[in-house]
């Protein structure tokens, strides 16, 4: 038997090491709080200003010169329609591109260059997309300052997010699943359609919604393409009573969106408009949080069925 260890010294050493644990823990907590509390303070401040202004009329009224009568009808309808167009284009394009890159593309330098570019695209300032869209969609294609142009612009903006989310979801599918399907005689497309796409859906949808939550708050590119700041009409209804029953007029209609409506109100001198801006901001944050919450819920509920 060796001599009894100096337990006192060991304990002192452990205590000293644990102090560092605690110091780092506190620093980390502080760092976290700076982020969280700042957001919380902003949000609470906006809520206090805005909530008293929230009522049914606020959602069903057009903007007005009189702050008490002004509402966000054209803004939330505009935002919703633009989001619809964004999703309609970004999802199929992004998912197809992601699947192509993961499953079909040959592994060579061309693919590498494309990959690097996509990652970089995610970091391009959104106003640059706005400039591109102004030249391409508004003038070149002649879509004008319309819902369609805005939706396409935001679709471009979130395309990298959708592609990256798709690729990550696909990569998390074990190779054994693919090999199992190929070993039964599947073609590449059968493997994609029956396995890759359904199993990566939770991840893809999450990415899409997070992208959309970013897009709904985008202001710069929408202003660049020339969205109007004062809109007292709604785009034409998509459904009609007489044949052909559907109408795509709304795609080419002028529009405004939530952040622009906010921006417009904040630039007014009257305090009552500031209150309107706070109320609209509150609604916008709630919309974003709701989308993110939906993404989280979707991920959990779909993931439960698929475990590797």
């Amino acid at each position: 038997m060796e001599a009894a260890r100096d337990l006192g010294a060991i304990r002192a050493l452990i205590a000293k090491h644990k102090r560092w644990d605690m110091i780092f823990g506190l620093c980390g907590l502080l760092a976290l709080m700076i982020g969280v509390l700042t957001f919380a303070a902003l949000f609470v401040d906006m809520a206090i200003d805005g909530i008293p202004r929230l009522n049914w009329d606020f959602f069903t009224s057009f903007p007005s010169r009189k702050p008490a009568q002004a509402g966000i009808l054209s803004a939330w309808v505009g935002s919703s329609l633009v989001m619809l167009v964004t999703a309609f284009f970004a999802v199929p394009l992004g998912v197809a591109a992601g699947i192509y890159l993961e499953e079909y593309a040959p592994k060579n330098w061309v693919t590498d260059v494309i990959e690097i570019n996509i990652t970089n695209l995610a970091g391009v300032p959104s106003i640059v997309y706005g400039l591109l869209a102004l030249g391409l969609f508004v003038y070149q294609f002649g879509f004008g300052q319309s819902v369609l142009s805005a939706g396409l612009t935001l679709a471009l903006l979130i395309l990298p997010v959708v592609i990256v989310a798709t690729r990550e979801a696909i990569r998390s599918i074990p190779q054994g699943i693919r090999e199992g399907a190929y070993a039964l005689g599947s073609t590449q497309w059968q493997v994609c359609k029956d396995h890759i796409i359904p199993y990566s859906m939770p991840g893809i949808l999450t990415g899409v919604i997070i992208g959309m939550a970013r897009a709904i708050g985008e202001t710069a590119p929408i202003i660049t393409i020339g969205a109007l700041t004062f809109i007292a009409f709604l785009p034409g209804a998509p459904l009609k009573a007489e044949p052909p029953f559907v109408s795509f007029e709304w795609l080419f209609s002028g529009f405004t969106v939530m952040p622009i409506q906010m921006f417009n109100w904040t630039s007014r001198p009257e305090a009552a408009f500031q209150q309107n801006a706070a109320a609209a901001g509150f609604v916008l944050v709630l919309m974003t949080l709701a989308m993110n919450g939906f993404a989280i819920w979707l991920r959990y509920s779909l993931r439960k069925k698929i475990k590797w």
Binding site: P174, G176, E179, G180, A181, L184, G185, H195
Partner: peptide, 28 residues
């Protein structure tokens, strides 16, 4: 592969129903 099939080291069922797993080769 339609003529020569394979069973792998690690069981690799598809995240589908038992029925659909067995039926998959036929559907293909």
């Amino acid at each position: 592969r339609m003529r020569i099939s394979m069973v792998f080291q690690k069981p690799n069922p598809f995240p589908k129903s038992i029925y659909e797993n067995v039926a998959y080769g036929l559907r293909v």
